[in-house]
Design a protein around this nucleic acid. Structure first.
Length: 287
DNA sequence: AAGAGGCCCTGATAGC
DNA sequence: TGCTATCAGGGCCTCT
């Protein structure tokens, strides 16, 4: 579910709600996320103040007062929910199970502050939380990842040299986090639509102008999605339980069989599986 | 080294 | 109704 824009929405909410607050308690019901949560996790976090809430790519980075970090990745189905301390049984975490606004299953982790708690819910358990001991290790943790689309390092010469000698198609590269980090399956299709590039196009056939369009449209699609509060495919919600509205802006995603939205284009949106991922594109204007 | 494929897991939906 | 198959927005690992 969550690509860079959705994670950014969560970051903004956490920044507003848990920054400068001290962790009172941590409850873990299921340690078997993507990476097993070690037994010492709770003790490590308890008593720490959250000094900063950052994001890189699809990763949330909570800075802790002891100069370490708590990394959080939402995987495919992870969500963060805020519960404010105005309910009975707040600390015994029973009340929200009865609330229709909150999920009642797969609430694996709670991080409790004095006035609110955050709940990590993740049905598929592809997400994870991880302690990173210091900034050097944090740097190392991300060194295999390419630049974000917003970075000045994501420029024409970078793209041209990265594509040199490669045989894959452009859709695969947009999803390749070593090339550019933060784009997922939905926005990859949307970016290629705006760029009028067919997702199956081999990168060695792309012209300079195509690459320029890709740079511009990566930024455009992601920043627009952030502005709209993220997409609401399946059950994406921000931490207040509200859905984003970007999905209304989809040009191709989940629009197979419908007319191309580009004015004067007579094309039909097609769905095609590329490297095991569904891909959507206009069969006429994306060359 | 690049690229293809498999796998981690649950839930929603479709088809019989 | 109840079974089985297929598909989901991610990322990492292995094999060729």
């Amino acid at each position: 579910m969550p690509e860079l824009p959705e994670v950014e929405i969560v970051r903004q909410s956490l920044d507003k709600n848990i920054k400068y607050k001290k962790v009172k308690n941590v409850i873990i019901r299921n340690r078997n996320l993507r990476f097993k949560i070690p037994l010492k996790f709770e003790n490590f976090l308890r008593g720490q103040e959250i000094t900063k809430v950052d994001r890189f790519s699809k990763y949330l980075i909570l800075s802790l007062s002891n100069n370490s970090f708590c990394l959080l990745h939402l995987g495919m189905s992870g969500t963060i929910h805020l519960v404010f301390n105005n309910k009975k049984n707040f600390l015994t975490n029973t009340s929200f199970y009865n609330s229709p606004m909150l999920p009642n299953k797969h609430n694996h982790i709670e991080i409790i502050f004095s006035d609110l708690k955050i709940i990590y819910n993740d049905p598929r358990r592809f997400g994870f939380l991880q302690i990173i001991r210091d900034s050097n290790l944090l740097k190392k943790r991300f060194e295999h990842l390419g630049p974000e689309p917003f970075s000045s390092n994501f420029n024409l010469s970078y793209i041209l040299s990265f594509f040199k000698g490669k045989k894959k198609n452009i859709k695969n590269f947009l999803l390749d986090q070593n090339f550019v980090s933060g784009i997922g399956n939905i926005y990859a299709s949307e970016i290629l639509f705006l760029s009028k590039i067919n997702p199956t196009k081999k990168v060695r056939l792309l012209k300079k102008e195509d690459c320029k369009k890709i740079i511009i449209n990566c930024k455009k699609v992601l920043s627009n999605a952030i502005k709209k509060g993220g997409s609401s495919i399946k059950d994406f919600k921000n931490t207040d339980g509200e859905t984003g509205s970007f999905q209304k802006d989809f040009n191709v995603y989940e629009r197979q069989g419908l007319n191309c939205k580009r004015s004067k284009c007579k094309g039909i949106i097609r769905k095609k599986t590329i490297s095991n991922r569904s891909t959507f594109f206009c069969n006429f204007c994306q060359k």
